[in-house]
Amino acid sequence: MEKERRPKNIFVQGPISPESIAKSIANHGSKTDIGGHSIFLGQVRADAKAEGNVIAIDYSAYEAMALEKAFEIREAVFAKYPLNCMHIYHSLGEVKVGELCLFVFTSSKHRKAAMDACDELVERIKAELPVWGKEILDTQGHVWKLNT
């Protein structure tokens, strides 16, 4: 009997730590049927805006809807590519410039499937997930981030 797949919590409060990324990578060392991994790390940039310089992004989400949408994206990408593993983590709350806010990790027998799946996941997450970023500025103001 196949185990029913359910939405996983992809959200992390605050920045994604390099230690958690290293641990995730290390956990795959025992999976000897994997030949390639692809990783995307999204980092907050210090963009200069007309209103001021970005010093952080405060991420918020409609969590229930976002988790359902992430699950839908995850299942579609699993169906399209021959993947062994897939991990998605997205920050909520404040993430300062230079810190990580998105971690997408795909694994497969061969590198091309892992790379293509990772690319598609990142593009779909940015376009479809109901997550919003309020860019905090050094002028005490803020502007809403547009995903591009």
Rank of each mutant, 00 (worst) to 15 (best):
E94Q: 14
V44E: 00
I39Q: 08
H90C: 12
Y89S: 15
S38K: 05
I21V: 13
R74G: 07
A56D: 02
E68G: 04
R111D: 03
A22C: 07
A48D: 13
L102A: 09
L100R: 12
G42Q: 04
L102R: 05
N53W: 07
S107Y: 04
E72A: 09
R45V: 09
L102W: 08
C101Q: 14
F71A: 10
Y59L: 00
T32H: 15
A61N: 03
I21K: 04
L41A: 05
H90L: 10
H87V: 14
A70P: 05
S107V: 03
S107R: 08
F103I: 07
A79S: 05
E19Q: 01
Y59D: 00
A56P: 01
A61L: 05
K69W: 05
K109E: 13
I34S: 02
M65I: 14
A56E: 03
H37R: 08
D33H: 15
F103Y: 08
I57Y: 01
S17N: 00
I39E: 07
R45E: 10
A66P: 05
A56M: 01
G29Y: 12
S60R: 12
E94S: 14
H28A: 12
F103E: 05
G98S: 01
S38W: 11
P15R: 06
A22K: 12
K23F: 14
I88S: 02
M86R: 14
A113H: 00
C101L: 06
G98K: 01
T32S: 13
H28G: 12
H28S: 15
H37P: 11
K109D: 13
R111E: 04
M86S: 10
E99R: 03
E68R: 01
S108D: 01
S91G: 01
N53S: 13
